[in-house]
């Protein structure tokens, strides 16, 4: 799920940046350092929306650096168990397929793919394909967009992994959605 969240980030600024462009360089540092990172608590920080407060720089007596505690608002993405997400297939193999949901990697095991979709080892690129009850041909291959329900997540230091399923109604590739 996506949230707008107020967060803080601490930046140590080198004295050479003290001057008319100090604010600008702080902003840049903030964007560089937080966007795209992942924390276990809040999930992926997708984008900084606004800077609430740059704070007052506190000079460090030992180094001469100024320390700023910046308050900012950012869009964060945290996947939850049971949540339905939309993703794009990246890799397909006989054990299942991987999909990217933004920065999140989701793996869907072959057991959690509806049985009418079969893995064809000779297909190129590899895919799961089959016909639905109303004779519609469905193919899951690299680049395909689909809906996945997240069954479980694991939070690494810098990444989140998830296991998903498409073995439910209204999951998987969506016809002309």
């Amino acid at each position: 799920m996506l949230f707008l969240k107020e967060l803080t980030h601490t930046i140590q600024l080198h004295p050479s940046f003290f001057g008319p462009h100090l604010r600008e360089s702080l902003r840049k540092r903030l964007f560089d350092e937080v966007e795209g990172t992942c924390s276990g608590l809040y999930g992926y920080i997708i984008s900084v929306i606004e800077i609430v407060e740059l704070g007052k720089g506190v000079l460090q007596t030992s180094s001469g650096y100024a320390e700023f505690e910046i308050k900012y608002k950012a869009i964060v993405f945290k996947p939850f168990k049971g949540q339905v997400v939309e993703g794009v297939v990246t890799t397909v193999n006989r054990m299942g397929f991987f999909a990217d949901v933004g920065p999140l990697q989701v793996f869907v095991s072959a057991h959690l793919i509806p049985p009418f979709l079969r893995f064809d080892p000779n297909s190129n690129p590899p895919n799961y394909s089959g016909e639905t009850q109303d004779m519609q041909l469905i193919k899951i291959e690299k680049g395909e967009a689909l809906r996945i329900r997240i069954l479980g997540t694991r939070v690494d230091a810098t990444e989140i992994f998830a296991i998903g399923t498409i073995k439910e109604d209204y999951l998987g590739p969506q016809p002309d959605a």
Partner: peptide, 16 residues
């Protein structure tokens, strides 16, 4: 039997 980055792909338990 099959584990994706520490997650069992069947029961989605963290087995790391």
């Amino acid at each position: 039997d099959v584990v994706f980055k520490g997650l069992c792909v069947m029961c989605s338990k963290d087995v790391s």
